[in-house]
Amino acid sequence: MRHTTRTAVMLCAALGLTAAVGSASAVPTASPPTARAAAVRQATAPVLVDCLWHAKVRPGDFILACGDGNSRLVSLHWDSWGSKSARATGVNVVNDCDPYCAAGAFHPYAVVVKLDRPQPWKKHPQVQHWSRMTLTYLGDRPEQFGRVVTYPLWN
Rank of each mutant, 00 (worst) to 15 (best):
Arg132Thr: 12
Val47Ser: 07
Gly104Arg: 06
Cys97Pro: 03
Arg58Lys: 15
Val49Cys: 01
Ala8Pro: 01
Gly82His: 07
Ala103Trp: 04
His129Ile: 07
Ala24Tyr: 09
Gln42Asp: 14
Gln144Asp: 13
Gly104Trp: 07
Lys84Ser: 15
Gln126Val: 03
Cys101Ile: 08
Met1Val: 06
Thr134Asn: 06
Val111His: 08
Ser131Glu: 08
Ala86His: 08
Val93Tyr: 07
Cys51Tyr: 01
Cys97Asn: 10
Gly22Ala: 12
Ala110Ile: 02
Asn92Pro: 05
Asp140Gly: 15
Trp130Cys: 04
Trp81Thr: 11
Pro152Glu: 04
Leu48Pro: 04
Asp68Ala: 14
Leu73Tyr: 01
Ser71Leu: 13
Val149Gln: 10
Ser85Phe: 12
Gly146Cys: 03
Lys56Met: 13
Thr18Gln: 09
Thr5Arg: 12
Val9Glu: 02
Lys84Asn: 15
Thr7Cys: 05
Asp140Leu: 12
Ala45Ile: 00
Val49Leu: 09
Met10Glu: 00
Leu52Asn: 15
Ala26Lys: 04
Asn155Thr: 08
Pro28Arg: 12
Pro152Lys: 13
Thr44Asn: 11
His124Ser: 13
His107Leu: 05
Cys51Glu: 10
Val49Pro: 03
Arg41Asn: 13
Met133Phe: 03
Ser75Glu: 14
His54Gly: 11
Lys123His: 09
Cys97Leu: 02
Ala30His: 06
Cys97Phe: 09
Ala19Lys: 06
Val148Pro: 02
Arg6Ser: 05
Ala65Ser: 15
Leu17Lys: 05
Val27Gln: 06
Ser23His: 14
Leu153Asp: 10
Arg141Asn: 05
Gln126Asp: 09
Leu76Ile: 13
Gly22Phe: 02
Ala45Phe: 00
Arg2Ser: 12
Lys123Cys: 03
Ala65Pro: 11
Gln144Ala: 14
Gly82Thr: 05
Ala35Phe: 00
Ser23Lys: 11
Trp53Tyr: 08
Val149Arg: 13
Ala88Gly: 04
Arg72Asn: 09
Thr136Asn: 03
Leu115Ser: 09
Ala35Glu: 00
Ala26Gly: 06
Tyr137Phe: 15
Pro99Gly: 11
Ala14Ser: 12
Asn92Cys: 11
Trp154Glu: 13
Gln128Cys: 01
Ala8Ile: 13
Gln119Asp: 04
Thr134Ala: 09
Ala37Ile: 04
Leu64Trp: 02
Ala43Leu: 10
Ala24Pro: 01
Asp50Ala: 03
Gln42Lys: 05
Asp61Thr: 14
Thr29Pro: 00
Pro99Arg: 13
Val91Cys: 07
Asn92His: 12
Arg41Met: 11
Asp140Arg: 13
Ala55Tyr: 00
Phe62Met: 10
His124Ala: 13
Ala35Gln: 07
Trp121Met: 01
